[in-house]
């Protein structure tokens, strides 16, 4: 979804070639590290957009090679872009592996949950330290966009660290409570069992 809309946005700036679009996207999204987009993905997306009539090929310099084709946004495309801008981005609830690990440690007693927390925390701090060091290298007067993007990651890490602190503080309480178990509700097809 976002790649499709990003292409519409980049084309609304000016007409672009396929390869140019790939580069612009990566620069804006924070580099290949952050969002590694394959050229193939761009071209399939472009094709789909063209079929939907949201973009059109620039006839003046048409070419057989996909990377040499130039695209332009259509009125319908602009309409679609506008709708995207005005719709909030939905944040998906996290599927957290650490949480699973912790619960299992609690349930099985195979590992010390506190130890898990410390290991996880050390790792998060390590990551935070890495990002902080990275951030220091950037010059705020020219690379503010990158700094802000780094800040997002930093803040997520920060949130995770806080969450760990909270778990640590309430670990004893959690321990006392029953581990979440599946509800023993009749499932599937009871008729079959009956048979």
């Amino acid at each position: 979804m976002s790649v499709r809309n990003a292409i519409l946005g980049l084309l609304s700036q000016r007409n672009r070639y396929g390869y140019e679009l790939l580069q612009a996207f990566q620069a804006m999204a924070g580099g290949r590290e952050t969002w590694d987009l394959k050229p193939a993905q761009i071209y399939t997306t472009l094709l789909r957009l063209k079929e939907s009539g949201l973009i059109a090929e620039d006839e003046t310099c048409s070419s057989e090679l996909p990377e040499k084709r130039r695209y332009a946004i259509t009125a319908a495309g602009r309409e679609e872009l506008k709708r995207w801008f005005e719709t909030p981005v939905r944040v998906e609830p996290q599927r957290d592996e650490f949480f699973l690990k912790l619960m299992l440690a609690l349930a099985t007693g195979q590992a010390d949950p506190r130890r898990l927390i410390y290991i996880q925390r050390a790792s998060l701090f390590q990551e935070l330290h890495r990002l902080s060091t990275l951030r220091m290298e950037l010059d705020p007067s020219t690379s503010l966009a990158h700094i802000l993007l780094l800040d997002q990651a930093v803040m997520h890490l920060e949130a995770d660290l806080r969450w760990l602190d909270m778990i640590e503080a309430r670990l004893e309480e959690v321990r006392k409570q029953p581990i979440p178990e599946p509800e023993h509700r009749p499932r599937g097809r009871p008729q079959k069992i009956a048979k």
Binding site: Q26, A27, E33, Y118, A122, Q126, T133
Partner: peptide
Amino acid sequence: VDETIMESRNGDEVSAVVGKMKEIGD
């Protein structure tokens, strides 16, 4: 209760990353 020693990435690596990012940005 715990202690963490940060492994600093060496300077070269950091500047390499930064250099690449700048390149992309341009």
